[in-house]
């Protein structure tokens, strides 16, 4: 009979006790220190709560009086999203090929990856500000921004898909002496096409969402309408716009989900 054991401890996640306590201590100190140094101005917050009351008071009931402006803003967002998706997907295809390790020579692969990383790293609002400065206020800056945004996502996913393709077909084509472009058309495109359509629809939905945001910094669409309403303290109109944005996003998400399920 073995000796009766009456203690048991769950095996710790990090086996080394020194490292474990160092991690706990580090996390604890970090959290405490950051929270303690947060510049919360309670007087300002108290004042802010009053202000919040005023905002919410002003926001109810939401005003749809200027629904013409609202509809125009939305149509513009929709146009921005459509053009950006079209341009973004079109540009994503060559960039994705560049960034696919199994197809591109190394220098081109790095260039493709770098483009994708840059496009992904910057939040669309930052990109929008730069484009607004470069090409002026309005929907064109919005389209350019979302083209970059689309490349960041579509080219990345597409490049991953290309890296997964069945290479036998490509080799068969090459062995038959087919030129490079024909290889692309016959061996690779059919394999990535279904994915591409799904990505495009997903991106259209994302772009519609994002267009509401980049408008806030002046890149056109419903976001600009919202920023203007907020800036002019038209909180009731701002709430109406926000409600419609939420509604449209929900509908667009449902529609894009349905379409992607069917493909």
């Amino acid at each position: 009979m073995s000796t009766a054991r009456d203690t048991w401890h769950r095996p710790p996640f990090i086996a080394n006790p020194i490292l474990r306590w160092a991690v706990y201590l580090g996390v604890g100190v970090y959290v405490l220190w950051t929270i303690a140094t947060l510049p919360i101005d309670w007087a300002r917050v108290a004042e802010g709560l009053e202000r919040a009351q005023r905002i919410f008071g002003g926001a109810f009931p939401p005003s749809f009086a200027r629904s013409g402006l609202l509809i125009d803003g939305f149509l513009e967002s929709l146009k921005i999203a459509i053009l950006a998706t079209f341009g973004g997907v079109l540009l994503s295809i060559p960039i994705a090929f560049m960034a696919a390790r199994n197809i591109s020579p190394l220098p081109i692969y790095y260039l493709g990856r770098a483009l994708i990383i840059i496009a992904r790293s910057f939040h669309p609002v930052i990109v929008a500000i730069i484009f607004v400065k470069a090409v002026g206020f309005g929907p064109f800056a919005g389209v350019l921004t979302l083209v970059v945004y689309s490349i960041g996502f579509v080219a990345k996913m597409l490049a991953e898909r290309i890296e997964e393709i069945d290479f036998g077909q490509v080799e068969a084509m090459r062995a038959a002496g087919a030129p490079y472009l024909s290889t692309l058309f016959y061996a690779i495109f059919p394999q990535i096409m279904p994915r591409q359509i799904g990505l495009t629809i997903y991106q259209l939905d994302s772009n519609l969402r994002a267009s509401a945001v980049v408008g806030i910094v002046g890149a056109g669409g419903i976001g600009s309408t919202l920023a203007n309403a907020f800036g002019r303290y038209d909180y009731d109109f701002a709430l109406a716009i926000t409600m419609v944005i939420v509604g449209v996003i929900l509908v667009s998400e449902a529609v894009s989900g349905q379409i992607r399920k069917r493909i």
Partner: peptide, 25 residues
């Protein structure tokens, strides 16, 4: 979930800047 997800960070930020004042809070 829906109201949190559908409203973008920037729009939330606009609201909370109005409430808490400019700053990281």
């Amino acid at each position: 979930l829906v109201s949190s997800r559908s409203i973008n960070t920037i729009i939330w930020a606009l609201l909370f800047v109005a409430i808490f004042g400019p700053g990281i809070v």
